[in-house]
Amino acid sequence: MLIRMFRGILLFPRGEMRGSIVFLGTVVLLTTACSARPAAPSVQEASKASSGQEATVRAAVAATVKSAAGIDERIEMGDGTKTMVLTMRGALDVGADKGQMKVALQMDGSGKAARSEQIFAGDTAYFRMMEAVDGDTAWRSVPRAETQSHYMFRAPLNDPKYVLDQVARMRGAKKAGEETINGVPATRYRGKLDHETLKLRMVEDKAVALDTLRDQLGKDIPATAEAWVDQQGRVIRARLHCPLGQGKAAAATVTMNLLDVGKPVTAPAAPPRRQSMPAITVGGPLTG
């Protein structure tokens, strides 16, 4: 049975911080097949099998966010015909409340990328366009805790901690094997993301749209999370994934590598000149 959803149209308006990126996502297809399936384990059996693994993932996230790490993140969102790719590189020290991220957005791997950067310093986040058609590259500042997500799998102001917060909420976590990530041995865990986790800190109108999509599906949106945990019990890779239709190209995937976990990071000081903005006014393809 094919369920065609005409929700989930992404409109990235012209002019993020007066920038120049336009992206129109098209129809989102979520496909389910009506076929016989083996009997699922009881709720009690599933809970007993997964609760220990969920606790392991939560503990790994908690250990990671007390430390510092380099960040190398890639987000791919496609509808089967067009693909939007965002890359984010920087470093974050959650314990010290400081960090820096540089972001690049490109459509289908062609044309000049749109770029922005963020600095996290205590309770404040600073951001700016690195290039803009009107020359407006001035810094803005917002209260970090008040920033919100405007798209599924998009962290407010590209804050890496948001991705870890979602991973920590995975349900039904199970071990999925042993791997080496960037030269570091790790155990891979995989689980599902519930509906409330997908809406974490999301603006109201987009959260309502996700509610509508779930209601039309008749079940939760099929999103998953994965975490690779090193031998010190820290997350060194996190991944979020959701199929958006038929074929691998129709999907949203976030892959975040955490490098040199525990190594001190440096971050720029707060920009001396910046314009304060209400957090509710900040949102777009480069800022999440």
Rank of each mutant, 00 (worst) to 15 (best):
M1Y: 05
M5D: 06
R7C: 01
G8Q: 12
G8K: 10
L11A: 05
P13E: 08
R14E: 09
G15T: 02
R18P: 12
S20M: 00
S20W: 00
I21N: 09
V22Y: 03
A33K: 09
A39C: 02
P41D: 10
P41Y: 04
P41H: 01
S42E: 10
V43Y: 09
K48E: 14
K48N: 15
K48H: 14
A49C: 13
S50G: 06
E54D: 15
A55R: 11
V57Q: 06
V61E: 05
T64W: 02
K66A: 10
G70R: 10
E73R: 15
E73D: 08
M77V: 11
G78Q: 08
D79L: 03
L86C: 00
K102G: 02
L105T: 02
L105E: 01
Q106P: 02
M107R: 01
M107T: 08
D108Q: 01
G109E: 06
G111S: 07
K112V: 04
A114Q: 07
R115P: 05
I119K: 03
I119L: 10
G122R: 11
Y126A: 12
M130A: 12
E131T: 15
V133G: 09
V133H: 13
D136S: 03
T137D: 07
V142L: 04
P143D: 09
R144E: 12
R144W: 08
A145S: 12
E146L: 13
E146K: 11
F153H: 05
P156I: 00
N158D: 09
K161V: 12
R171C: 07
R171E: 11
G172K: 07
A173E: 14
A173S: 06
K175M: 06
T180G: 10
T180E: 14
I181L: 15
P185Y: 15
A186L: 06
R190S: 14
R190F: 13
D194S: 14
T197I: 04
L200M: 06
R201K: 13
E204Q: 08
D205A: 13
K206D: 08
A207G: 13
A207K: 06
V208L: 12
L210V: 01
D211V: 14
D211I: 15
R214K: 14
D215G: 04
D215Q: 00
Q216P: 06
L217V: 08
G218R: 05
D220V: 11
D220A: 15
P222A: 03
A223P: 04
T224G: 05
E226W: 10
V229I: 15
D230E: 12
A238P: 09
L240M: 07
L240D: 05
C242I: 03
A251M: 07
T253M: 03
L259N: 09
V261P: 13
G262W: 04
K263Y: 13
A269E: 15
P272E: 05
P272A: 04
Q275P: 00
G283V: 10
G283Q: 07
P285A: 13
L286I: 03
G288V: 05
